[in-house]
Every structure is written in structure tokens, then in C-alpha cells.
Amino acid sequence: MTTSSSDPIHSNSAPEPVGLYPHARRVGNLLFLSGVGPRQKGQKQIPGVMLDSHGQIADYDIAVQCRAVFQNVRTILEEAGSSWDNLVDVTVFLTNMKEDFQTYNRVYAEYFKDNQPCRTTVEVNALPTPIAIELKCIATI
């Protein structure tokens, strides 16, 4: 993990970005995370996602995806010198608000019982990989 405040931050444990961007960037005492999904480093299988023979989502478990995303966020935060308790703002992207919001909201409450950052949840048409949730976070260091 690189930690200079002028350099991008790349996690050694989080899944690789799907484009040319860092896992996070520090500006002063703020840490801005790039979008984080449930993929796992070095694995093709995405937690909670079943793909058909064409690589399209056949079925998925939003609770499993939520837990995987939250673990990835925690990993990036900790490797960057921050922590879960330092999250101050979370933007959540769901691909199916109608079907997934209740479960996502329940799992979210389990993880954010003590620290309650500001939160925005929006529905998007699609995400860059076959996933149903992605988080964009800001934390303090």
C-alpha cells in the first residue's frame, strides 16, 4: 500500500480496479475511495453472483454482495491508514432498488450500528461488472 498524501493509494488486498484509477486518494485529512464492489482479489467468482453461460447475471444474493463490499471498503480504509469508524459519507449504487433496498438497508444497519456516516442511495441501470451494488466512500484519516 502506498501512503504518501500526494500519491494514489493502491491496496494489496482489495480487488484490482477495473480501470485506470486508484483504490483511494488522500487529500489533507480526507480519504476518497473509488467505487468499491464485491469482487475478491484474484478470484473470478463474485460473492453472491451466479452468472449464466454468457457472463450475464442469472441470479444474485444482495446480502452476500453487501457483506463482501463492506469488507472490501474496510480493507482499503485500513490499508490507507483510516478505519471503518472514520467513514463520514457513503454513496451506494444499487441496480435494483425495488427488489434489493430492504435487504441492503438491513445489512447496512448491522455494519453501521455505531458509526453512522451520511448516506445517499441511488439506483443505476448497470455497473461496470456483473454486480448489484457498489459503494463510493469518504473517510477521515
Rank of each mutant, 00 (worst) to 15 (best):
Y21I: 07
I57G: 02
K41G: 02
G19H: 09
G37V: 05
G35Y: 10
P22M: 08
Y21R: 12
E16H: 10
R39Q: 13
G19N: 06
G19M: 05
V18W: 12
L20K: 15
R25N: 09
K44A: 09
S13R: 10
L20M: 11
L31F: 08
S53Y: 13
I46N: 03
S34I: 06
Q40K: 14
E16Y: 11
Q40V: 13
S53H: 15
R25M: 13
G55N: 05
R39W: 13
F32P: 02
V18D: 13
G55T: 03
F32W: 11
I46R: 01
H54R: 11
V27D: 12
A24G: 06
V49T: 01
G48R: 01
A24E: 05
Q56M: 10
R39L: 09
Q45H: 11
A24I: 05
R39H: 14
L30Q: 03
A14M: 08
E16M: 13
R25C: 07
I46D: 04
G19K: 04
Y21Q: 08
V36L: 07
K41I: 00
R25L: 12
D52T: 01
R25G: 09
Y21G: 04
A14Y: 02
G42D: 00
L33R: 04
I46W: 04
Q45Y: 02
H54P: 00
L51V: 01
K44I: 06
G35T: 10
P15Y: 13
K41D: 02
L33Y: 01
L31G: 07
G48L: 04
G42L: 04
R39F: 11
L30T: 04
S53N: 14
S53V: 11
G55A: 06
Q56D: 12
P47V: 00
Q43C: 01
H23Q: 12
P38I: 03
R39D: 06
G42E: 01
D59C: 03
A58Y: 09
H23V: 14
Q45G: 00
S53I: 10
H54S: 06
L51T: 01
R26V: 03
P47S: 12
I46G: 02
Q56K: 14
L31W: 09
Q56C: 04
Q40H: 09
R26G: 07
G19E: 09
P15W: 10
L51E: 05
S13H: 06
